[in-house]
Design a protein around this nucleic acid. Structure first.
Lengths: 154, 154
DNA sequence: CATCAAATGTTATGTTGTAACATCGGGCCG
DNA sequence: CGGCCCGATGTTACAACATAACATTTGATG
């Protein structure tokens, strides 16, 4: 895979539609509950915890939704590449390109929580390679950088 | 800093002594409670949670030690480089080289939990650099690889 | 319609992490 | 000595994150 390629970021309906397509291609159903969870997840501008999402869905649908159910769906989303988990924040983000498999690098601002991500297959490749050289396989790199984002430094 | 250098792993008393020296050099006290927590931490052969350590210390001293107190000491250890936190496992490991500052790469086996670490300043350097190029600073890379270790594959 | 499986709901509980305040003990100064 | 301060630890309570077990609903299918 090339080290770089361009993306334009799908938003709103386009993003949801891409998610639905990918999930269905994986042989899973796009239920209304899953749609709600995805909407809620995509509606956050920074990583959201399962409880954040449960609360958002609860509000949006005016009924109680247990974190439990949200976790199930988030796990499914992560396994289908519709969402990713940010390990160092115990939180989830929608994946703008569910059809496109990357190891990704998250940059997490400790001040404001804003999280951006970088795709750099050269970096992730060297990490993968190092782990494989140590006898690991299969391998799932978790690469996150905690720090302060440009907006929060003065 | 060189990309590679050799370490022999201090164990037992030598490791504890290195920890004590480093902590005192940082202007902190090496109390008996801190020594106990360090001993417990170093006694695990894989990353241990704060609760694991609280239990180990409780047993060793035959008195109840609250997780709370352990967290405080672990936080201190991490900030003084005596220990490291494995983010994707919510657990801590003793640092064999507290006097030696590295970003490190953890390889965590999903099957057995064994966790090894690699120091590779070339890899961590590229990650740091990428984050800085994105406007982040200061920067603390979290690089962990989940997978299956050589012993657990058949 | 009957049945079955997948999805979701519900309740309970386990694990991880923090907050707030009390107590202890050692150094320091009058 | 006695009083004071401060860092470390103890104690209690609670918040946040995550999973287990089982009940119920829903929708596809024979």
């Amino acid at each position: 895979m090339a080290a770089h390629h361009h993306h334009h970021e799908p938003k709103g309906k386009a993003l949801t539609h891409a998610a639905q397509t990918t999930l269905e291609k994986a042989g899973e159903q796009w239920t209304s509950m899953r749609a709600s969870v995805f909407e809620a997840l995509a509606g956050f501008d920074k990583p959201a915890s399962a409880y954040d999402i449960a609360e958002a869905v609860s509000k949006a649908e005016d009924r109680r939704v247990a974190a439990n159910s949200v976790y199930r769906i988030l796990d499914l989303f992560v396994s289908a590449n519709l969402a990713r988990r940010v390990e160092s924040s115990n939180a989830y983000v929608a994946n703008a390109h569910p059809d496109c498999l990357h190891d990704c690098i998250f940059l997490v601002c400790d001040k404001c929580g804003q999280t951006t991500h970088i795709d750099d297959d050269r970096i992730t490749g060297t990490v993968r390679h190092a782990a494989e050289a140590a006898g690991f396989s299969p391998v799932r790199p978790v690469i996150e950088v905690r720090g302060t984002c440009a907006d929060c430094e003065e």
